[in-house]
């Protein structure tokens, strides 16, 4: 948690301290894309290598999906409605 925040701040401070040329900025901009591919690949390995998780995927998979899909849908709609409400209050 602390290290996560540290990594973000370090990246931010570095990019403010060093004035990168436009070209370097574009290249560095792709760094987060590379990192997320790496992250998902390794995450896949930790799931796939765990025999218990793989065995339970069949029986628990649908329940897990339903809960995940509900949480995602509900929270999107709540933020959407909340944003509309705040906008309306701000306008009046």
């Amino acid at each position: 948690m602390a290290s996560i925040f540290g990594a973000l701040v370090l990246g931010f401070v570095l990019s403010k301290a060093v004035r990168f040329p436009e070209k370097a900025q574009n290249i560095i901009g792709n760094l987060s894309t590379v990192a997320i591919f790496l992250l998902l690949f390794i995450m896949g390995i930790t799931i796939g290598a765990d025999p218990e998780v793989m065995a339970d995927l069949g029986s628990l998979g649908l329940k897990a999906f339903l809960i995940a899909a509900a949480a995602v849908t509900g929270s999107i709609l709540a933020v959407w409605a909340g944003t509309a409400l705040v906008r309306r209050v701000a306008r009046d």
Binding site: A7, L8, G11, F12, V13, L14, S15, G29, V34, L39
Partner: peptide
Amino acid sequence: WALLLLLFAVGVELGF
């Protein structure tokens, strides 16, 4: 480590 790299990259991009 991949997570830290990701956050570092996002930090750099925010800095831009």
